[in-house]
């Protein structure tokens, strides 16, 4: 099966920057996989996202999206397959109302109106925003605006959705709302998700994590493997999930802890069995 995203030896250098933004980046994302890319500010995460759909052209290297090689001729076909949700909920809302915004991408592709009406309705239902179809963006919360942005993307029936720090400007409630929505969408469709984030809890939900540092892939692995690095992550300017911090603190106090990553529930289960005499 062809991978959803295959990047090999990608290099990118901003014209007026001292250091290259991306150096020899190679990775693959399988169809239907959820991969998180983490890294500190300026590690090249967002630059990588923009290289995947031709918003930026790589200096060298090959980007394959669902079997198509990114080039001048394929860029529009690839943009139809890759949707990006950006960071700022306000600055990506083009339409005057929710429904208009969802339709924007479809209008761009010249989809007939009859089909547009169906797809907009479906997309709004998928993100639970049908009741807001005629609302103006000014009357929506940040989380709702990001949901509309996601609806605008799924209306185009893409294969891949990239969340480019899509939750970083939201309050905690909005953040969980969006993550839950992505999990829900993945349960019903074959969507490949690439989430670029420095929210460690978002990364913990992914199937696989790629750690980017100064434009290079430092390491990749399952969330459990990555978070097991603990102190090294902190040295790279990244946070560690709370259960992992607690684990490290307990280990330091001489409590025997497992080496694998535990989420909050797993940790609670481990801790109580530790003390249980049953």
């Amino acid at each position: 099966m062809t991978p959803a995203i295959a990047v090999s030896h990608l290099n990118f250098h901003y014209p007026d920057a001292d250091h290259p933004a991306l150096q020899d980046v190679s990775f693959e994302v399988g169809a239907g996989e959820w991969v998180a890319i983490i890294g500190h500010n300026g590690s090249g995460k967002s630059t990588l996202a923009k290289n995947l759909n031709g918003l930026l052209a790589p200096d060298s290297g090959v980007v394959d999206i669902a079997g198509m090689t990114l080039a001048e001729e394929t860029v529009w076909a690839i943009r139809a397959k890759v949707g990006i949700v950006f960071q700022n909920p306000d600055n990506q809302f083009v339409g005057a109302t929710v429904a208009d915004d969802v339709a924007f991408g479809l209008e761009n592709r010249g989809i007939p109106r009859a089909e547009m009406l169906v797809r907009v309705q479906e997309a709004l239902e998928a993100v639970e925003m049908s009741d807001f179809a005629s609302r103006e963006p000014a009357r929506l919360s940040g989380g709702q605006k990001q949901r509309v942005a996601i609806a605008g993307i799924i209306a185009q029936r893409p294969d891949i959705i990239i969340l480019d720090e899509a939750t970083s400007m939201l309050d905690p409630a909005g953040r969980t709302e969006i993550i839950r929505l992505i999990q829900q969408l993945r349960a019903t469709t074959q969507l490949t998700v690439l989430s670029i984030t420095h929210d460690i809890d978002e990364a913990a939900k992914a199937d696989r994590v790629i750690l980017l540092n100064d434009g290079q892939i430092k390491t990749t692995g399952t969330p459990a493997e990555i978070f097991a690095y603990g102190p090294e992550l902190l040295a790279l300017g990244l946070d560690v999930p709370y259960p992992e911090k607690l684990k490290a603190a307990l280990t330091a106090r001489g409590v025997a802890m497992p080496q694998t990553y535990l989420d909050e529930e797993g940790l609670v289960a481990y801790l109580w069995t530790l003390h249980s005499t049953m």
Binding site: W76, A103, F104, N108, R113, M116, G152, Q156
Partner: peptide, 14 residues
């Protein structure tokens, strides 16, 4: 750009 906007002619209207 990311949502495929290429200018006027081929667009349909919602």
């Amino acid at each position: 750009d990311a949502r495929g906007y290429q200018g006027g002619d081929g667009r349909t209207k919602y």
